[in-house]
Design a protein around this nucleic acid. Structure first.
Lengths: 294, 294
DNA sequence: CGGAGTCTTGACGAGATTCAAGGCCAGTGG
DNA sequence: CCACTGGCCTTGAATCTCGTCAAGACTCCG
């Protein structure tokens, strides 16, 4: 954050000199881009939304930034694991490759997300992370990070917590994949994306997609045609406005509660009449403030 | 394992007496069932397939066993979290409840599996674990376990590793849910189950299902009718023999490679002719030893 | 024996995929 | 500057898989 990083490179080193050497010669990439080459523990914790340990030593350890261009891979399947990654800026996808070479999109990480957890088990990555835009990534050497966890108990718990959060996210994903209709999947995908953008301080109503229809489809277990058709349908109904990758959510509330006609097959027989009458037009009936629609 | 546990309860206590007091009065359940009420760290590590720390202190800490009857809940959604669970024996399911009260099955844990990880994040369980048969569960108080992790670095890494493994498992689940046909899902479900049974020393070819068709369907994102029909189809084709919950895998190799006619939509156009000719009958074409079929 | 829960099987239809054709957009090279 | 190319997106029509609804059989238990 010290200005004038361009002309006087040493200045950014002045208060960090001795410790930086620890990992300085690992990778020479991204020398002085955007003036933020190293982050201390506090910055890392802020990024991950976890409470930082209140100690002075934290300033001593620095983590290196690396830049990736769109299309580049942060890690690949089978690659041996020794570091975790935090997204500092940019947009990516993580994918699985099945036995026939087809990509299966697992997530779309963005600022503040942790990558590479899948590599801890048996020391090799099970998935692949690809930059969808230019990215700034922070390297967290696993050994160093767990060592820090030993001295700061809060940090260790936070690490478990982040992994647990990731696990819960995937569980919800499984629930969504196996129980929702195509319309509901796309609707929730859009609102989730919007929510994540607003958490980052951007507009949650109006944004542009960084991924192709094909990638969205892979993520949601649909074909690209179905995704496209669904977006067009939402557009015509006035729920969103869409033009290529430019999206605007006009009625987020309705999108959030949009669902399959009978959700799986429902134990509550009460709703059946309403369901068949109203839900045909994709309108959720018992959203608290559905009166507006009429 | 000392015999005569019934009449002389004190005998099973003789060699553990002083240490057990540590946590003896936490919970009075399961007093002397099957003679194995407490496990030390080594036993726990063996169960989880992780290397146990080579120390003497480990004998000091004991973990309590609790028994659950079929239908009982180990933890419920929203319940506050403070302990992890290891399955020592028995069969369970973990489920999510969606906004309309429908169950979504997430996994079928059995011996050696770790439960409750989803609770670490924000201290409340996000899912629910239900015993499908009578179960013997080991309690791992989270605080105690992480404290042990502090003194034994291997243990901490092992904990991360187990969580990572769980994450990878869920990723594969996502891939399977969104890319495979109903037949392929059921086929892989059966072979996975078989593999898990054989890892535990049981027969991987012949076993009985502990869950209903409805639960299988929920797990795979299918209806119970589709599951039933698919099993019947496999039965007629001689791939399995099935009678109610009694399953025998007659051709595991074929089942493992069974897939959708076009897997997702395939980049490899080569296979299309073969595919349309052969795959209509659900036979995988390029399984190494497919020649047997003819 | 009767009843509840589970499983099987059939007929039908709706929703999603597949196949195909054409439009939009950006980058490239003449 | 413009035509050309390739990737991405849209839209339509035909197909098919899977879900829905319904009826009946099996099993376990009181």
């Amino acid at each position: 954050m010290t200005t004038a990083a361009l002309s006087s490179r040493p200045s950014s080193f002045s208060n960090q000199a001795s410790k930086a050497i620890l990992s300085a010669n690992i990778n020479e990439a991204g020398w002085r881009c955007h003036g933020n080459l190293w982050s201390n523990l506090r910055e890392v914790c802020d990024l991950l939304h976890i409470a930082a340990p209140v100690s002075s030593v934290e300033e001593e350890v620095l983590f290196q930034h690396v830049r990736f261009k769109a299309g580049q891979r942060i890690h690949t399947i089978g690659q041996s694991f020794d570091t975790l990654y935090i997204v500092n800026s940019g947009f990516l996808k993580t994918v699985l490759i099945d036995e026939y070479g087809n990509e299966q999109v697992l997530s779309f990480p963005m600022k503040g997300d942790l990558l590479g957890i899948d590599g801890i088990h048996n020391q090799h990555h099970a998935s692949e992370a690809v930059a969808l835009s230019d990215c700034d990534i922070i390297l967290l050497p696993y050994k160093i990070f767990t060592a820090l966890g030993h001295t700061y108990a809060e940090l260790e718990h936070a690490m478990f917590s982040v992994m647990s959060r990731e696990l819960v996210r995937e569980q919800l994903m499984i629930g969504m994949l196996s129980a929702l209709s195509a319309e509901a999947k796309v609707a929730r995908f859009l609102t989730n994306l919007g929510d994540r953008f607003s958490q980052l301080g951007y507009s949650g109503r109006s944004f542009n997609l960084r991924m192709t229809r094909h990638e969205i489809g892979s993520y949601l277990g649909l074909t690209l045609e179905t995704v496209s058709r669904t977006l067009s349908a939402f557009n015509e109904m006035g729920l969103i406005s869409v033009e290529q990758r430019e999206i605007c959510l006009l009625d987020p509330a309705t999108l959030k509660t949009l669902r399959r006609l009978p959700p799986t097959k429902a134990r509550n027989k009460v709703s059946e009449k309403v369901s068949t009458l109203v839900s045909k037009k994709l309108m959720p009936q018992w959203s608290a403030d559905a009166a507006v629609a009429a």
